[in-house]
Simulated scan of single mutants.
Amino acid sequence: MNDDLLHAYLQHHWAGSSAGTAMFERVGRTHSDPDVAARVRQLATEVNEEREQLRQIIMATGADPSRIAAATGRALEFAGRFKPNGRLVRRSPLSDLFELEALRDAVAGKRAGWQLLRTATEDDARVDALQLDELIRRADDQLARLEDLHLRVGRTVISA
C-alpha cells in the first residue's frame, strides 16, 4: 500500500468532513421547519462523531489531520452559501430544499470514502474493518433519513 496516496486520500476526506460538519451545523440552525432543523442537528452530532473517527484513522495510518485541509473545507462550505436563489435580501424557500440535497450529497461522498477505504485497506492492520463496516451502515441510515426529510420538504416547497 502506498501510504503517501492513502494519506492524500484521507486528507481530502478530512477537508470534506470539515465542510460537511459546518454545513450540517448551519442547516440545523437556519432551516425554516423546526422539526427538520432538530433532525439535522441530530445528524450534525453524528457527523461530528464520525469526523473524530476519521481523525483517529488518519492518525492510525501515521499521518496528522491537516489544518489547512480543514480550513479549506470550511471556507468552501462558506463560499457555497453565496448562490443565486432568486431573492436579494431574504432566504428563498428553495434554500431549505437545496440544502437538504447538499447534505445528501455530502453523506453519499462520505459513504463512498468509507467504502473505498474498507476495500483498499483490507490487509492493513492499522485500519479496523469492523469500524468501517459500522461507518458505512451509519451513512446508509443517514441517507435514508435525509431522503425522508428531502421528500417532505420538497412536497411542501413545490406545492406551496
Rank of each mutant, 00 (worst) to 15 (best):
R91Q: 12
R104Y: 14
R104V: 08
A125G: 14
A102H: 10
R90G: 12
A112E: 11
D124Q: 08
V107N: 00
D96C: 04
G113T: 03
A102E: 11
R111M: 14
L117E: 00
A106H: 05
E101Y: 10
V107G: 01
L116T: 09
G113Y: 04
L100M: 05
L103I: 05
L97S: 06
G113W: 02
L97I: 04
E99G: 04
T119S: 14
A112I: 05
L94Y: 13
L100Y: 05
R91W: 06
L103E: 02
E122C: 11
D105P: 01
A106R: 05
R90I: 14
R118V: 03
R104C: 07
L116P: 02
K110R: 12
W114C: 01
Q115G: 04
S95Q: 15
A120G: 08
D124W: 06
L100G: 02
S95G: 07
A125I: 13
Q115H: 10
E122L: 15
F98K: 10
A108R: 15
D123Q: 11
F98G: 09
A112Q: 14
F98D: 08
R91T: 13
L97K: 05
R90A: 09
S92M: 09
V89P: 00
L100V: 02
R90Y: 13
A102Q: 11
L117W: 02
R111A: 09
E122R: 14
L100I: 06
R111P: 04
T119N: 10
F98N: 10
V107R: 01
A120K: 09
S95H: 09
V107A: 01
R111S: 07
E99R: 06
T119F: 10
A125Q: 13
P93E: 07
T119Q: 15
F98M: 11
W114Q: 00
Q115E: 14
L116V: 11
D96W: 04
S95K: 12
R104H: 09
T121N: 07
R91G: 08
G109H: 07
A102P: 00
A102F: 08
A108D: 10
R91N: 11
L103S: 02
R111Q: 13
D124C: 04
A106M: 08
A120E: 09
A120N: 06
R90L: 14
R111H: 11
L103K: 01
R90H: 12
L100K: 00
D123S: 10
P93F: 04
S95F: 06
D124E: 10
L94P: 03
V89D: 09
P93T: 06
L103W: 04
V89R: 13
R111T: 10
